[in-house]
Computed example of a mutant assay.
Amino acid sequence: MTKQVLTIAGSDSGGGAGIQADLKTFQMRGVFGTSVITAVTAQNTLGVDDIHMISLENVAAQIQSIGADFDISAYKIGMLGTAEMIECVANSVKKQKFGTLVLDPVMVAKGGAPLLQESALHALKRELLPLADIITPNLPETEMLTGVAVHDDASAERAARILRDFGVQHIVIKGGHLGNSGSLKCRDWVFSGETMTVLEQPRFNTRHTHGTGCTFSACIVAELAKGKDILSAISLSKQAITDAISHPIGVGHGHGAVNHWAMADFQAA
Rank of each mutant, 00 (worst) to 15 (best):
K3A: 15
V5S: 00
V5I: 00
A9N: 03
S11T: 14
D12L: 09
S13N: 05
G15F: 03
A17W: 02
A17M: 08
I19E: 05
Q20K: 09
Q20P: 06
V31W: 02
T41S: 09
M53K: 11
N58C: 14
A60D: 08
A61H: 09
D71S: 15
I72C: 02
G78N: 06
G78Y: 08
G81V: 00
G81E: 02
E84M: 01
I86H: 06
V89M: 03
V89Y: 04
A90Q: 01
S92D: 04
V93I: 15
V93F: 01
K94F: 03
K95M: 08
K97P: 03
F98P: 02
V102K: 06
L103Y: 13
V106E: 03
V108E: 11
A109R: 00
A113D: 08
Q117I: 00
E118D: 15
A120P: 10
P137N: 08
N138S: 09
T142K: 13
M144C: 13
L145W: 07
T146I: 05
T146M: 07
A149Q: 12
F166Q: 02
G167I: 02
Q169F: 07
Q169Y: 13
K174V: 10
G176F: 15
W189A: 06
W189L: 08
V190D: 01
E194Y: 11
T195G: 03
T195R: 12
M196H: 09
T197H: 10
L199K: 06
L199E: 03
Q201S: 12
N205D: 14
T206L: 00
T206Q: 04
R207Q: 14
V221S: 01
E223C: 11
L224K: 04
K226V: 10
K228C: 13
D229K: 09
D229M: 07
I230V: 14
L231N: 09
A233V: 11
K238R: 14
Q239M: 10
T242I: 00
D243W: 04
G250Q: 11
G250M: 10
V251L: 14
G254K: 08
A257E: 12
N259Y: 04
W261F: 12
A264V: 09
D265H: 13
A268I: 14
A268Y: 14
